[in-house]
């Protein structure tokens, strides 16, 4: 299974047509796939809170948005998640590379990894963790759930899910 393609197929099948991204090494393939699709408008953002602003606007303009980012960005976006996405009750699937988990080669990444789930829990953000390739089968349901409840929803995807980071 090509998980990059599967993820973007699920986005398209759920009418997601506006995607903003900030890169992570683990996300390179899925970002490339997003960029290649004609039915998705891909707009790279410079910072993830900016990206969430773009997504809020796109949603109010009638498009289904998504953001693809690294878990370190949870530290950047808490104010935006609380005062924009949640306060105005808007849906936002967040496909997040979960750095600093098993098979992580970069020690610094662990420092935000240990806070990631606690911060998401504190924000009452529904959170899913993809550890095995097969876990991606849940993505379609998660996207439907996100647009049903109009909430930001986190999908954490770790190095093991992507097939290893340093040793692939």
């Amino acid at each position: 299974m090509n998980i990059d393609k599967k993820i973007v197929d699920d986005l398209v099948a759920n009418d997601v047509s506006f995607v903003t991204t900030v890169p992570c090494k683990q996300l390179a393939g899925v970002i490339e796939e997003v960029d290649a699709r004609e039915n998705i408008f891909h707009i790279p953002s410079n910072k993830e809170d900016e990206g969430m602003g773009l997504c809020a606007g796109a949603f109010m303009g009638g498009k289904r948005p998504a953001i693809i980012m690294q878990n370190t960005a949870i530290g950047v976006t808490i104010n935006t998640l609380a005062t924009l996405t949640q306060f105005y009750r808007m849906p936002l699937p967040m496909i997040i590379s979960y750095r600093g988990e098993l098979r992580e080669p970069v020690a610094c990444q662990v420092e935000m990894a240990v806070h990631t789930k606690a911060l998401l829990a504190q924000l009452n953000i529904p959170t899913y963790h993809f550890h095995w390739q097969d876990d991606v089968k849940e993505l379609d349901n998660i996207l439907k759930y996100t647009f049903m409840c109009n909430k930001p929803v986190a999908i954490l995807t770790d190095a093991n899910f992507w097939g290893g980071y340093g040793d692939q």
Binding site: D49, F59, M60, P65, A82, L84, F87
Partner: peptide, 22 residues
Amino acid sequence: NFYMLGTMGLSSSIGFGLALAQ
């Protein structure tokens, strides 16, 4: 009118996303 009640800094981003979407 869309009034921002918080989130300092994102007026341009929200408006721009809206302009791109319709």
